[in-house]
Design a protein around this nucleic acid. Structure first.
Lengths: 102, 102
DNA sequence: GCAATAGTCAAGTGAATACTTAACTATCTA
DNA sequence: TAGATAGTTAAGTATTCACTTGACTATTGC
């Protein structure tokens, strides 16, 4: 599965998007991250794993606490893909415009 | 389901991402769009519906031909979400930097 | 009019997803 | 060192997903 596929799939889930929004405020432990979600800790950890595997989040365990933080390179990949689609689309529009004005 | 959720879910599938890449070259009919994919036309139409419902693609039927094209507003929504996450994240880093240099 | 073309609709299937609970393993603290 | 804390692992389940096939409808060109 490509990076991009893992990333988009990861962000397709509202819980995981909310986790990203929480983590963009700053790093935090798994249980702190889990606080607002009405589901088991195990479920949160499963979501976290998906985010980590996709490259959107980085985690590091120190003692018994795992600290989670955004990995900006994941966001970069999305940005690149969107920009590429848009630039191809706009280049095409420009050509169309040239054609019409000629 | 939120717009953003539909969009990210839609792009989580490689076939649908490939369809977006194809459509960013310019509008085309359903069967033209379907050409490179090794699956039934019905399956392609199902993917197309998901893209349309998410707001990433616009379609219009003229006679027996349905023309499909990118709707750039979908891409805008992704861009906004990514920018927001990144700006929150960077603002936090800036504060940290201020703190460390003080 | 009658094929061929372009797409639509519905029902079915196997695999993936988002959870749950329960039992477990480290690590820290009093 | 005992008990609380922080997280991990595994197994089970209901739902959703990505298809398929087959029957169908609407348009177009000869």
């Amino acid at each position: 599965m490509s990076d991009l596929e893992q990333i988009f799939r990861a962000l397709g889930d509202p819980t995981r998007r909310a986790m990203m929004e929480r983590l963009s405020q700053g790093p935090m432990s798994v249980s702190k991250l889990a606080e607002p979600f009405e589901m088991s800790l195990a479920a949160v950890v499963q979501h976290l794993q998906i985010l980590e595997e996709s490259g959107l989040v980085r985690t590091e365990k120190t003692g018994r606490v795992r600290s989670c933080s955004i990995d900006p390179r994941g966001l970069d990949l999305i940005d690149q893909w969107v920009k590429q689609r848009r630039s191809t689309w706009e280049r095409r529009l420009d050509k169309l415009e040239d054609f019409l004005s000629a």
